[in-house]
Simulated assay, not measured.
Amino acid sequence: MSSYMEAENHTEVSQFFLLGLSEDPELQPLLLGLFLSMYLVTVFGNLLIILAISSASHLHTPMYFFLSNLSFIDICFVSTTVPKMLVNIHTQIKGISYMGCLTQVYFFMIFAGLDNLLLTVMAYDRFVAICHPLHYTVIMNPRLCVLLVLICWLIIFSASLLHILLMRRLAFALGTKIPHFFCELALILKVAQSDTFINNIVLYVATALLCVFPVTGILYSYSQIVSSLLRMSSTASKYKAFSTCGSHLCVVSLFYGTGLGVYLSSAVTHSSNRNSITSVMYTVVTPMLNPFIYTLRNKDVKGALERLLSRAASCP
């Protein structure tokens, strides 16, 4: 009988309700304008990075190939959550369909995970460039670069699909409310009516593996880079070598710093509203800042971007 009721609940649930960042009517126009501006800046900023890299032949190197992929992933990442939030704020309708919620969870996990793995691949690229400069072009050949990106996609697609398949077996009550501005897997598991033990175990294991291995890879790469830099006699050589890592280090610090901030915030406080506001940092702010970090700290990207904009301005 209980299994029948669970199945009935599961089939009857047609939508969830996203509570958003605030229910204050006076704040809605401000939130709409703020997040629409941030979304447009993120999309156009990352799109410009992709166009600048593709239009400049001297930037067709592994480092910029990975950077253009990171920009594409950031566009997709922010597009997974923000447009739906903007529609909900504008229409004052907080509903999201059951399948829409599952789709959002799936793609959010994919692009968050890809950000994580791609930053690790970029760290490896810098490790090879600084520690094995004579063999860089041989090791980081186009075939390996494409293969590394495809492996990242394959790992994340598989892990995300497993979560969704496990989530499909859960039952939910009618009118289930999610205290967030998007469907996040951890929160969905909290509001589920059925047993989520297996889901939580898989979530913890997958999160641990997809965090521990990338972070270990990044730390190892940079430990070898620092060791190599210390062996260099010329200060100019040290600065030139390390300057190529500066932008990547800033992005890594921002990504993991905001992610850690969200985790600590949810662990320390049980305020769902505060957790939602903290989540904005890694879901919206980080993808928005990445183009600025790479443009302001990288002369090659800045130069390519200036030439692209000047050509666009000179066109009739």
Rank of each mutant, 00 (worst) to 15 (best):
M1V: 12
Y4S: 09
A7C: 14
H10F: 12
S14Q: 15
Q15T: 05
F17K: 09
L18M: 11
E23L: 13
E26T: 10
E26S: 15
L27H: 08
P29W: 05
L31N: 06
L32R: 03
L32Y: 04
G33T: 07
L34D: 01
L36M: 10
S37M: 08
M38P: 02
V41P: 00
V43M: 02
V43Q: 00
G45V: 01
G45W: 00
H58A: 08
H60G: 09
F66E: 00
L67H: 01
L70K: 00
S71A: 13
F72G: 07
I73T: 01
V78K: 01
S79W: 04
M85L: 12
I93Q: 12
I93A: 12
M99V: 09
F108I: 03
M109Y: 13
L117M: 11
L118V: 05
L119D: 00
M122I: 00
Y124I: 15
D125M: 02
V128P: 00
V138F: 10
I139Y: 10
N141S: 11
P142K: 01
L144N: 03
L148D: 02
L148W: 05
L148S: 08
V149K: 07
W153C: 09
I155V: 07
F157E: 09
A159W: 09
S160T: 05
L162N: 04
L166R: 03
M167E: 11
R168T: 14
A171D: 13
A173S: 11
L174T: 06
T176E: 04
T176M: 02
P179V: 02
K190E: 09
V191C: 14
Q193H: 15
D195W: 03
F197W: 08
V202P: 01
Y204K: 15
V205H: 02
A206D: 08
T207F: 10
C211Y: 11
V215C: 09
T216K: 10
Q224E: 10
V226I: 14
S228L: 00
L230P: 11
S233T: 08
S234T: 07
T235G: 10
S237W: 10
Y239D: 13
V251H: 09
F255K: 07
G257P: 04
G257D: 06
T258A: 12
V262S: 14
R274G: 14
R274A: 09
M281N: 14
V285F: 13
V285C: 08
T286Y: 05
L289V: 07
N290I: 13
N290Q: 11
P291H: 03
Y294K: 05
N298E: 09
N298C: 15
V301P: 03
R307S: 13
L308D: 07
S310L: 13
R311G: 10
S314Q: 12
